[in-house]
């Protein structure tokens, strides 16, 4: 069989470059298999993350020929070129080789108030119809590979926006909470003012890369945007709320429920890099 050249970016926070590895092609292999073969023979200390090798854990995210992908779900025979580049996810700080520091995402997860159900039925349990949970179940498929976060140009190409933008993975989470039939917290102002929903310009790259084929933009982000229109931009809806005297949570009220506020951990005490108003550090 033919040979293939894997051109892998290797380096750390002080810089790096591409290293080429030539290997035989083996039938039925995925990119991660090839990386493992390189580890076992040519470069034992080549750093990469993986766990399940089945597209279920979302650990092995990297960029293959410039496209954010799971290495374990990209079959070699789907890549047309004889030279394949693998680079670490671009959006996150580098640790080493293909491994990046994805703690950004774990900080973001702490900005969202948790699921807060209403009262259960008299027998202490809850009832939900399948039609009521279909939408949120799609979002629960997320394996937290953070490929959508990686590809999203809002933070990929504009570092400063990380201070104001939760990213598609967390819009998916917000949508799953917002559409959960039992949840009682209105997180819309939080999404608008604190988590940067408005930064997304619905260009759908997140949807293109999602290995779980979650329709992130169509089913999570746009519905969220429309829900925010209901709460903030639609004068008729505003009037309706006034008449029915419905209160809207302010961003501060909702944010007060976020884990980062309620139960802070070391992650929330990150050196806040003396962020000033302009987002300059």
């Amino acid at each position: 069989m033919t040979e293939v050249t894997m051109s892998i970016w290797r380096g750390d926070s002080s810089g790096g470059s591409f290293f080429d590895y030539n290997l035989e092609r083996v039938e039925g292999e995925v990119v991660l298999d090839v990386v493992h073969r390189i580890q076992a023979t040519l470069a034992p200390d080549l750093a990469c993350r993986w766990n399940c090798k089945a597209g279920k854990c979302g650990s092995c995210s990297a960029e293959i020929d410039g496209k954010p992908s799971l290495m374990c779900m990209t079959r070699m025979d789907t890549l047309p070129n004889d030279k394949i580049t693998i680079t670490p996810m671009k959006t996150f700080p580098i640790i080493r080789d293909l491994v990046t520091d994805v703690s950004f995402n774990y900080v973001m997860a702490r900005q969202i108030p948790p699921f807060t159900p209403g009262d259960p039925e008299p027998d202490g349990t809850y009832r939900m119809q399948q039609v009521d949970i279909d939408r949120a179940q799609e979002f629960h498929k997320c394996i937290e590979c953070f490929l959508c976060q990686d590809v999203c140009h809002v933070i990929r190409d504009h570092e400063v926006n990380k201070l104001y933008y939760a990213g598609p993975r967390f819009f998916v989470r917000l949508a799953s909470l917002d559409m959960h039939p039992l949840d009682t917290v209105d997180r819309r102002e939080l999404a608008r003012q604190h988590l940067g929903l408005g930064f997304c310009n619905i260009t759908k790259c997140c949807t293109e890369v999602c290995p779980e084929h979650i329709k992130i933009t169509d089913n999570a982000i746009i519905p969220l945007k429309e829900r925010v229109v209901d709460s903030s931009y639609d004068p008729i809806a505003w009037l309706g709320r006034k008449i029915r005297r419905k209160v809207k949570y302010t961003v501060d009220q909702v944010y007060a429920l976020a884990p980062a506020q309620v139960a802070p951990t070391a992650l929330d005490r990150l050196p806040a890099t003396a962020i000033d108003d302009e987002g300059k550090s």
Binding site: Y106, K141, E144, P259, P264
Partner: peptide, 18 residues
């Protein structure tokens, strides 16, 4: 996956150091 994500979110909200 559903189980671990549920427990993960719960653990996140009660402030466990990870």
């Amino acid at each position: 996956l559903e189980m671990i994500r549920t427990l993960q979110n719960k653990a996140t909200s009660v402030g466990i150091e990870v």
